[in-house]
Design a protein around this nucleic acid. Structure first.
Length: 404
RNA sequence: GUGAGUGUAGCUCAGUUGGUUAGAGCAUCGGGUUGUGGUUCCGAGGGUCGUGGGUUCGAUUCCCAUCAUUCACCCCA
């Protein structure tokens, strides 16, 4: 038997219904905030991700679905959504036009990882990107929008906030941290490796011994330049004004290299170890890295599979019709009737002649509102038997009455 | 990539101290006298006990390998 590849899942009802419910409602909210739908290719040149996500990240280092296509191009299946949107932004020359643009997207992402709870090789994200909005109010409104989405679905979460600094303050801090780490030999092997590749990452190491050591580590939040410090204070002020609860986590780092300044993460305690349900932040240098004109950017992405674990669908009401024949002679009329009804109504049709009991059972199982049956009596009277499964009333009506 | 756990019916699982016809619940289908559902009662179908090898008179059970899957580390949404 051929089965789906490891870490790849088919999406069937009821999960598929939940997926649509999720993206439709998120899309609606995003549109209210002025975002427009964008779709970018799943396959992109490998260089795009190497330069945006960053070669130091594990995503690029070892998790990408990378291969050479038949034309000899080095290509990748996208591991995240931002890079492609930024590429499209530049390709449309919006950077040169200096226009403000807001996009939302959703779709599959690919990372070659070992699957576990909340982590698949093909997974789906819903994300937004906003360009040319350097005002800190945009950071705030994006967080407010994300909060609104999660609140809509009744999802519980914790919001963590940090500032990663900018090109003014970050490099100096990084050196300070590396200096601190040089004197600490008690840290774990992973942290020793990170010390060279991506020192900021040591701060969110899960090893308790490391964390004990890092209590004394310098924190970026204490080393911000005046602009970053001011913006971060302003952001907190706005969020306070809207009564958004958050905690400042000075050890929050984002996994992708392109982030600076505002960084945030929405975390849930109810879905296992992979607890980040949404994450994002500012990336004011990314457009330049990708050969565009200097353009600020900010966005976030949500892990749809992780969110779907937390969403409870509203109870579905009985809707539509079920049509079934009680005798062989009625099967043609039933077929024709159903086809006509389908022009205006959701109509389930059973091709087989069955007992009334069996049809009612089927109709009930399919959660339709009305069960229609045609048998010898109905054919003789040229009427249609219809029962409302909700209020249990039944009657005989004419064809025209039903279709009209 | 590392570690641990699990593979028995469509699903969730029981069971076999190694021995004849491997069980339950749910789901499916049929029926409970002549055409009435979602909560009933009765019945039926459905399993080469993940795959390959080894030990044994005999393996679904013990051993090894392999594959799949789950969880955790790593990483990240």
């Amino acid at each position: 038997m051929i089965q789906a590849l490891r870490g790849m899942k088919d999406l069937l009802s009821p999960s598929s219904e939940k997926y649509i419910y999720f993206v439709e409602n998120c899309s609606k909210i995003a549109r209210n905030y002025g975002f427009e739908y964008i779709e970018t290719p799943i396959l992109e040149e490998t260089a795009l991700f190497k330069r945006s996500v960053g070669e130091s990240s594990d995503i690029v280092g070892k998790e990408m679905y990378q291969f050479t296509d038949k034309g000899g191009n080095d290509v990748c299946m996208r591991p995240e959504g931002t890079a492609g949107v930024v590429r499209a932004f530049i390709q449309q020359k919006y950077d040169k036009a200096k226009v403000q643009k807001k996009f939302f997207y959703y779709g599959p992402m690919f990372r070659y990882e070992r699957p576990q709870k909340g982590r698949l090789r093909e997974f789906h994200q819903f994300g937004v990107e906003s360009f040319n909005q350097s005002n800190i109010k945009e950071d705030a409104s994006i967080i407010l929008m994300l909060k609104e989405m999660l609140d809509f679905f009744g999802i519980g979460y914790r919001l963590e906030l940090n500032s990663l600094g900018c090109s003014e303050c970050m490099p100096a801090y990084r050196e300070k941290l590396v200096e601190f780490l040089k004197g600490e030999d008690g840290i774990c092997e992973d942290c020793k490796r990170r010390r060279d590749t991506n020192p900021i990452r040591v701060l969110d190491c899960k090893n308790q011994r490391c964390q004990d050591i890092y209590i004394n580590a310098p924190l970026l939040i204490d080393n911000l330049c005046p602009t970053c410090r001011g913006d971060f204070a302003k952001l907190k002020e706005i969020l306070d004004g809207f009564e958004v609860k958050y905690i400042v986590n000075p050890k929050l780092v984002r996994g992708l290299d392109y982030y600076n300044k505002t960084a945030f993460e929405f975390v849930s305690d109810d879905i296992g170890a992979q607890s980040a349900i949404a994450g994002g932040g500012r990336y004011d240098k990314l457009v330049e890295y990708l050969d565009g004109k200097p353009t600020s950017g900010i966005g976030f992405a949500m892990g749809i599979e992780r969110l779907m674990e937390l969403i409870v669908m509203p109870e579905s009401k009985r809707v539509g019709y079920y049509v079934g024949a009680l005798c062989d002679e009625a099967s043609e009329p039933c077929f024709e009737l159903a086809i006509k009804m389908r022009k205006t109504q959701k109509t389930a049709l059973n091709y087989d002649k069955k007992s009334l009991k069996a049809h009612l059972k089927n109709a009930d199982k399919q959660n339709v509102r009305y069960c229609i049956c045609i048998g010898e009596d109905e054919l003789a009277k040229d009427k249609i038997w219809i029962k409302d499964l909700q209020d249990k009333k039944e009657r005989l009506i004419s064809r025209d009455e039903l279709l009209g």
